[in-house]
Amino acid sequence: MDFFCCFFQSHYNYLNFKVFRGLKFNLFIRFYKHFGQGFEHPGFPNVFYTMKKIFCFLLLSASYSWAHAQTATVVKFDRIEKIMKTQTDEVQVINFWATWCAPCVKELPLFEKLGAETPGVKVTLVNLDFADKVEKVNAFMARKNIKSETVLLDEIDYNTWIDKVDASWQGAIPATLIVNTRTGTRKFVERELADGELQQLVASVK
């Protein structure tokens, strides 16, 4: 490669001086010019200007999605109780899930869609991974770009709180509680939901 590049050495020097000094970029320029077509000196900085713009765009869009993916707050059960009992105008949709639970992960987009598209609905994702795995949970949510509010419920003594969510709950996840806090009307489902079912359940408690 150096053999080919030496033909353009003067141009590289010009570029290196004017735009970039880093070794990596230097190599990149060589690579780009070596395989690039129709290289002409006056046009070259423009090509780089475009590359720079693309790079900045990628950086910005990455930071945008990072800023909008949620991170999980570690909470105790009183927080869940508050969501279930505080009277709000919105229908509360509370989904219990974990990163290790395949059907839970599969149905997460349904909750994301519901939260984003349905006015008057508040979605809370209650994660049940172990509390020392919160970083793994956050990385998972960033990767999947989860935007719903998420809490990690740090209560290992399950038997003390499962019945408080719903007496019929055996403890399997995924499980979902839909509650109208004004009327007290609630629906509890201990299984994976089908597409469209959530909207019906929300409508049934309104």
Binding site: A98, N159, D163, G171
Partner: peptide, 14 residues
């Protein structure tokens, strides 16, 4: 009788 979080049994035909 107690309850615990666990993986749901993977039922067929669902």
């Amino acid at each position: 009788r107690t309850k615990a979080i666990g993986c749901g049994i993977k039922w067929k035909n669902v």
